[in-house]
Design a protein around this nucleic acid. Structure first.
Lengths: 160, 160
DNA sequence: CTTATAGTTGACTGATTTGCTCAGGATTAG
DNA sequence: CTAATCCTGAGCAAATCAGTCAACTATAAG
C-alpha cells in the first residue's frame, strides 16, 4: 500500500461525489476547478476508479460521475488501491548471508505493520466518515454561508 | 505524509536497530545485505534519520548505528516523516468559481482523514510494536532457528 | 603509529512515477 | 444537429526513487 498525492486526489474526489450524492452527478470539470488538478489527470484517475467499479460515468450534458455503490461499501483503502499500483515487495528471500536468520525478521515486522495500516484504512468507509461529528461540522459550516473558508490552515500532516 | 518503499525501508531498518539494541550497533552493510537495499541508498536514508535525531552513528571498527532514543520515544510516524519530504498541498485557494463554496470542503475532509492516519501511526512506537504478541512470536521464531554465525558476530562476541 | 572499519558527505545517473497536454473519439440532453 | 460530458490513448517534462562512485573523517585494534 502506497500513499501519495495521487491517492489523496482520488480520495478527496470520491468524498466530493459522496457529499453531492443526491444533487446529481459531479463533473470532472468542477472537481478540476475546485481542487486545482488538471482535467486530463482526473480523467486518468477516474478511469481507474471506474474499472474498479467504484464510480459510474453519466454521459452527455448534465452528466458527470456518481458513486457506483452506496458510500458504506466504499472504503478509503479501496480508493487508494484502485489508483495506486501495488508495490513490489523486494524480499530478501532468506538469503544465506543473512546472519543466522536473525536479522531478516524485519520484513515480517513490516508485513505485520503494513497489514495494520491497511486494516485501518479499510475500516473507514465513506458513509461512516462523512457522518462523523467533526466531519459533519465541516460540511454544514460550508453549506450555510457562501463564505469561502479554508485559508491556509497549517497543513502539517498532508498525507501525500 | 507519504507512504512508499522509502518509508518502508526506513521503518524496517529502524526495527532492526530496535531488535538488536542490546547486541551493539548494527552496520549499514548488514542491513544492506539482509534487506537487499544498496548501501549508499541506506546511507542517504540514515543521514536523514540522523539529522532528525532518531539514530546515532558509531564510527570505527565494531561501529554502526544505534537508536538515539529509547524505542518508546520513536513512533512510526516519526520515521516516515524523517525520510519522506513533505509534499506541496496544492490548495484550490478559495477560487470564486468554486460553486458556492460547497465543493471545496473536500480539502478539509482530507485534512480530517489525514490527521487521523497520522495520529494512528504516531501512536505506534517501536517498543510497543515489538512487544506485541504477534510480533514477539515472529522474533522468537527467528531467534531459535539456524544459528550459524558470521565472523562479525564472532569478533564482536570476543570483544565483549 | 598504522591500518582497517565504518560513518559522513556530495556529485552524478538511469529508471520510474507524477502530473499534465493534446487530440481525438463516443454518448446523450435539449 | 449541437453542445456537454465521458472516454481513450499517445506523448512529455519534472520530480522522485534507487543507486553508483568517490572522497573524506573518526575511531578501535594491532
Amino acid at each position: 500500500m502506497r500513499l501519495s498525492t495521487k491517492g489523496r486526489y482520488a480520495v478527496t474526489a470520491m468524498m466530493d461525489l459522496a457529499v453531492h450524492q443526491d444533487t446529481g452527478p459531479v463533473t470532472l470539470a468542477d472537481i478540476s476547478r475546485c481542487q486545482g488538478i488538471s482535467l486530463s489527470y482526473l480523467e486518468q484517475l477516474f478511469a481507474k476508479l471506474r474499472r474498479q467499479g467504484l464510480v459510474k460515468g453519466v454521459r452527455g450534458p448534465g452528466g458527470g460521475y456518481r458513486l457506483a455503490k452506496p458510500p458504506r461499501d466504499i472504503s478509503v483503502a479501496d480508493i487508494i488501491l484502485a489508483v495506486d499500483e501495488k508495490v513490489d515487495t523486494t524480499l530478501c528471500e532468506g538469503q544465506e548471508n543473512c546472519q543466522g536468520g536473525k536479522r531478516c525478521l524485519t520484513h515480517e515486522l513490516w508485513n505485520n505493520l503494513s497489514q495494520q495500516i491497511y486494516d485501518y484504512l479499510a475500516q473507514i468507509n465513506l458513509e461512516e466518515f462523512l457522518s462523523r461529528p467533526s466531519v459533519r461540522e465541516v460540511i454544514e459550516r460550508q453549506g450555510e454561508g457562501g463564505q469561502h473558508r479554508h485559508e491556509h490552515e497549517v497543513r502539517r500532516f498532508t498525507l501525500a
